[in-house]
Design a protein around this nucleic acid. Sequence first.
DNA 1: CCGATATTATATCGGGCCGGCATATATCGA
DNA 2: TCGATATATGCCGGCCCGATATAATATCGG
Lengths: 200, 200
Amino acid sequence: MDVRTLCLAALSRGDATGYEIKKMYESGPLAHFQGASFGSIYPALSRLLDDGLVQAEAREQDGRPDKKVYRLTERGREAFRGALTGPPPEPETIKSDLLFMLMFATEMTPTHVTDLIKARVTELRSLADRIEAKASDCGVGDDCGETASAGFFREPGPKFVAGYGVTIYRAAADYMERHQTDLVREIETARAALPNMAAE
Amino acid sequence: MDVRTLCLAALSRGDATGYEIKKMYESGPLAHFQGASFGSIYPALSRLLDDGLVQAEAREQDGRPDKKVYRLTERGREAFRGALTGPPPEPETIKSDLLFMLMFATEMTPTHVTDLIKARVTELRSLADRIEAKASDCGVGDDCGETASAGFFREPGPKFVAGYGVTIYRAAADYMERHQTDLVREIETARAALPNMAAE
DNA sequence: CCGATATTATATCGGGCCGGCATATATCGA
DNA sequence: TCGATATATGCCGGCCCGATATAATATCGG
């Protein structure tokens, strides 16, 4: 997804600065499933300004550098709807460093493989929990979603997507936990059958 | 994953040209979970050559431009093992254009949402089937994996990884199918409650 | 039998994006 | 008080993808 489109999407939910857009994709209502860095957000906003898809209002700030608050123009809103309606997204495949490394599991020590998988399982469960916490109303006292994203996850789209994330992360963690011991056992026998495994 | 490491990994399974490495990640034994383009493979091989991690042997070819067959040096093999042992991979999160688009499902027509999800479900099932076909021995008559990758998926690592892929892709397809109707119904009621939805 | 297309093979280039860095201030905890 | 963190913008090196160029052979349909 184009960072310019990502900016339009963020601004469709309200005016914001570049810094705030970044936060939305990092820990705010748009976190998970997409991300963008400062190095792409600020140039993207400049281009959107040139193209007339956003307006900027410079607000003088106590001390800090002037804050530039961006707002969608009508043309910007159309462009965003166009991106949503437009060409269907390319088929997405799983890209994973860990999975790739594990294809060469016989080149690693069983201990290392175990550590790698254990760490990943923890990460996956924590990711699922974080989505669930954010989605399940964040009802009580905590500050939860910060920028007025309270009701966002009651909308059908975010609810569907959050459920997807939780389901997939849990399925991944479950698979790894269930097949971990088999994998390690098979590596051990494979390495025992192989030569020079002295001091690794 | 660094494309240089990807090249080392491919060459650790046997000598190959840049073109053949590309094929391995496209449809060969290393397909799924990682990929690389010509625009990164050829420069990567050049750098690996400069750094002494691979050797190149130019083979004169009948007619076609000279084939450069690359081979891992001992230092290259060490570097690859280092990458496997080295810093654990960063936590990986799901990145998905479709999921992101669906967060704004209320801005789309129910028909469009249905089409999008149906197409993705088909893709996911086909992806899972392809992995399963490649992993389940490709035993009989078909040409299956081409370049001598017959037994690769009987090794513990690839078997574990293939199972992961099949499981996750199926789980994703299942989730989408099971929650699709709910999503569409909720969009419809949400849009009915909203203004100016005449000619979209 | 001829032309269109695919395949084998290498390489460059533009553009997009990430991560690190620079800059400036204010506040909060150790 | 000193470093870390947060607010806020922006540049730059480097990595990578996708498109394109080049070039010769193979193959299949008309």
